[in-house]
């Protein structure tokens, strides 16, 4: 069992990854689980997220039946830190990162990331959302999750072939993203 604790307030429910049969279920009110059904001889994956503390909220994440996808733990760590940014963190009255954005972001990645995919670099958006960036293996890939595009909006550039650049909602481009994840997002950042 692997576990980690990070500061932040997070509530997840209803996470579904149809490709890898990953789903979340609400757990004890302020916690959630992230569950991958047993398939192809692989062990089931269960991640429990528990929230505690109203004045100084903490996000406790427990990953059972490891290994979890390598991108998940560093993503949770990064997102947990960003959830603690105060209002006006950008000096232009930006709101804090919304818990719903964290849910949208992890849901979005779970829909196309492979077991060998590298974790993205996470940054906040000015609208209380999150952005995932990969700049590796000759590609620039950005996915923003916020109230404008809760399901994620993708910008992709192939530095070897600029004619193949594209952008659009994540949900409309899952096959392209799965192909990119398999061929260009491997390895640790």
């Amino acid at each position: 069992m692997a576990s980690l604790a990070t500061r932040g307030s997070m509530r997840m429910d209803g996470l579904v990854d149809r490709r890898n049969e990953i789903s979340t279920v609400e757990f004890e009110g302020s916690s959630a689980s992230f569950f991958r059904a047993e398939t192809g001889g692989r062990k089931p994956l269960l991640v429990r997220i528990r929230i505690s503390g109203n004045l100084a909220p903490r996000m406790l994440v427990t990953i059972e039946n490891a290994p979890a996808p390598p991108w998940l733990e560093p993503s949770i760590q990064s997102i947990g830190r960003l959830l603690m940014l105060p209002r006006n963190w950008d000096l232009e009255d930006a709101p804090p990162v919304q818990v719903s954005s964290a849910q949208w972001a992890l849901e979005g990645l779970a829909r196309f990331m492979g077991d060998a995919s590298a974790a993205p670099q996470w940054t906040p958006t000015r609208a209380g959302g999150l952005q995932a960036d990969w700049h590796q293996d000759g590609i620039d890939l950005e996915i923003a999750f916020d109230c404008e595009y809760p399901g994620g909006y993708v910008l992709f550039s192939d530095l070897r072939d600029s004619a193949s650049d594209w952008e659009g909602p994540l949900a409309s481009n899952l096959e392209k993203l799965r192909s990119i994840a398999e061929s260009r997002l491997n390895g640790q950042l």
Binding site: W89, T123, P124, H135, Q136, D137, G138, I139, L159
Partner: peptide, 9 residues
């Protein structure tokens, strides 16, 4: 907060 590492460059 709006800075990331670019492995390509």
């Amino acid at each position: 907060e709006w800075v990331v590492y670019d492995k390509n460059r």
